[in-house]
Design a protein around this nucleic acid. Structure first.
Lengths: 189, 189
DNA sequence: ATGAATATCTAGCGTTGCTAGATTGTCAAC
DNA sequence: GTTGACAATCTAGCAACGCTAGATATTCAT
């Protein structure tokens, strides 16, 4: 009965190719260039095949976003692992977060701007999202196990900085100084 | 020569009706429901008429956004005018900002999420945007006339909170506590 | 009243997300 | 092996989108 397994593998691989193509095109040309026809072309299947994998276009964006949260959580943990004290951990996490958003703007956009149906503070929160939140929380409030007002506010600041920097509404030249200020704020709380 | 004046008035009024309709529909059904056909129907003209007023759909969204910045600046000034000290001013501004975003989510979305070509920290920044920034700055750093790292970071925090609250990624129940924390941060800097 | 200029509309192009129905391929039963 | 059912895949098309060219109606100076 290896046939069913093979089909399952092929299906998973095709699904992977769809999200990879979406992410790549979005990063190169923006999410508006990610059309079903374009994706179908890229994976060399007809359009209806995509609907055997995802309910609609938004579901593809959401899949990319969830993969992004996995990446972000990993990056945050990796960035913080060499910190020697709380302040260093906060600084590492903040810098990593902003670098992540900056390096992959389309991915970040999928994670935070595009879909409205990926909730966080909710019973049905995806584990990937919880995990990224936990990585932040570990740096800000290592001793605290409650949901974390400080972590939420810290995250909001980072997200706000990422968003406003991206849209050119705060000076690119002051990035370093803002980072220092954020670290001071989070450290003090 | 009252004829030209009348035509000018009619034109301005029609333009006003377009943006008002866009804002209303967006607030009720989301920006994706704001189509050229729908707007044309609402103002009882054919579609090409809209293009005599705006270059394209994005320009309509941008017009709504700019009006939103006027409203926001006024709301911030109004909210802060009765504050007796710096801390009260910061708190008033923060609360007003978040209430503004919460009360008119589609408008706020137009201002911060949708268009990419309304720059801030830039020589060609629209005065409406500068003015809103100045209203924030007056509360955070009343004595400081420089562009304001603190103001930028404060703004970023408020925007992040607005965005994450809206998408349900931070707990609605902790709004008060986050506000208090933000005020403490901004006050300390 | 008439002709030019302006304002407005009808009709349509190309593209989008998505889907029904036809077509091809696969595999077990005889 | 052949056949028939089932699954996989494609072709073709719908309705709605932003936007525009060309036809028509309206307005105004002469």
């Amino acid at each position: 009965m290896g046939i069913a397994e093979r089909k399952g593998r092929e299906r998973a691989e095709r699904q992977q190719r769809i999200t990879a193509a979406a992410r790549e095109i979005a990063e190169r040309e923006g999410w508006s260039a990610v059309t079903i026809r374009r994706l179908a072309d890229t994976i060399e299947y007809s359009q209806p095949v995509l609907y055997a994998h995802f309910a609609n276009r938004d579901a593809i964006v959401a899949a990319v976003a969830i993969a992004g949260f996995r990446d972000l959580a990993a990056a945050l943990r990796d960035g913080a692992k060499e910190a020697e004290d709380r302040q260093q951990a906060i600084e590492a996490v903040a810098a990593t977060y902003l670098a992540f958003a900056r390096a992959q703007p389309a991915l970040y956009e999928a994670m935070f701007t595009l879909p409205t149906d990926l909730h966080f503070a909710d019973s049905e929160t995806r584990p990937e999202l919880r995990d990224a939140f936990a990585a932040l929380s570990a740096a800000v409030a290592p001793s605290n196990t409650e949901p974390g007002v400080a972590t939420e506010t810290f995250w909001a600041t980072l997200h706000g900085l990422a968003a406003l920097e991206r849209s050119g509404r705060i000076r690119d030249s002051a990035r370093r100084e803002r980072l220092a200020l954020v670290v001071a704020w989070a450290f003090a709380s």
